[in-house]
Write a protein that binds this DNA or RNA. Structure first.
Lengths: 145, 145
DNA sequence: GCTAATATATACTGATTTTATCTATAAGCA
DNA sequence: TGCTTATAGATAAAATCAGTATATATTAGC
């Protein structure tokens, strides 16, 4: 039960973008450098996020990305749905998935419930929440230094 | 974020065993047949569960497995710890794991919290709970038929 | 038209998971 | 004792997937 690097990178990328000045165009290269992530991999990750309408792009020279929606309105669940290739803990939970045992399977209801617990949590956390956590942590750090 | 087949099989195997008469020796072959799981794979799964003290074995002819501990006392979290090779959502959460970014990483606290939510849930569900759910489902099914 | 940026597809590599195979060991039983 | 039925354990094979890299196309600024 691991979170893919794809989703982890994607979340950091979003937090970085959400934390930048609102009117600035941020290039993949810059994020890659700051977050220490392979740039080409980031490009593959950022595109589905754009397609999902979370951010927008200006192509060509001096171009870059910027947030389209407010960080308060984007839940981590949404990010998972876009990036994590299997949002479902087990295949049986997929909509319309055929599973002969569903009705008799001893563990189906448990997995179903577990899945709900996870999704409820992820729906309850927004990018803004994470940004806030991060900023508070920074303040504390500065205080110690 | 997928649950490994190993853990899923293991849980079903435990539920099957916990649901059998207490004094009966159950053979891997029987579980494999009933649950439609490759027998040799089950053997690999059942051993660590035995090592963890959840069940015991009588070797040789007419041998088999039986539950050592009460299903009420075994949480799903324990099963995960034994079977799921990565209990941590991300490597950074491992004890003693070195991560340069830990203090400054924008998402570390979020993952840490998410991990806790999951573990709390898994600790709160026991094999007996799942067994009960299953039996109630059976009753309902019988009612409709 | 040159340069800087993203868009897209694809291929390579390595790790991991699932399954299968083979041999060893233990215990019941004639 | 020797045959049979179990698990024990190591290891190999197959399949899948994640992560990365490469190559080419497209878009826009200057």
């Amino acid at each position: 039960m691991k979170i893919s690097t794809r989703t982890r990178y994607g979340l950091r990328l979003l937090i970085y973008l959400a934390g930048s000045e609102a009117d600035r165009l941020v290039q993949v290269k810059e994020i890659a450098k700051h977050e220490n992530i392979p740039a080409k991999y980031l490009e593959q990750i950022i595109r589905p996020l754009k397609k999902a309408g979370m951010l927008k792009v200006v192509r060509g020279a001096k171009g870059g990305y910027f947030m389209e929606r407010a960080p308060e309105s984007i839940s981590v669940k949404e990010v998972f749905d876009v990036l994590e290739n299997s949002t479902h803990l087990i295949d049986c939970l997929k909509d319309g998935n055929f599973c002969e045992g569903k009705e008799s399977c001893s563990t189906f209801d448990f997995w179903d419930n577990f899945n709900k617990v996870i999704n409820d949590y992820l729906e309850g956390v927004t990018l803004a929440d994470i940004l806030k956590m991060q900023r508070e942590k920074c303040k504390k750090l500065m205080f110690y230094i």
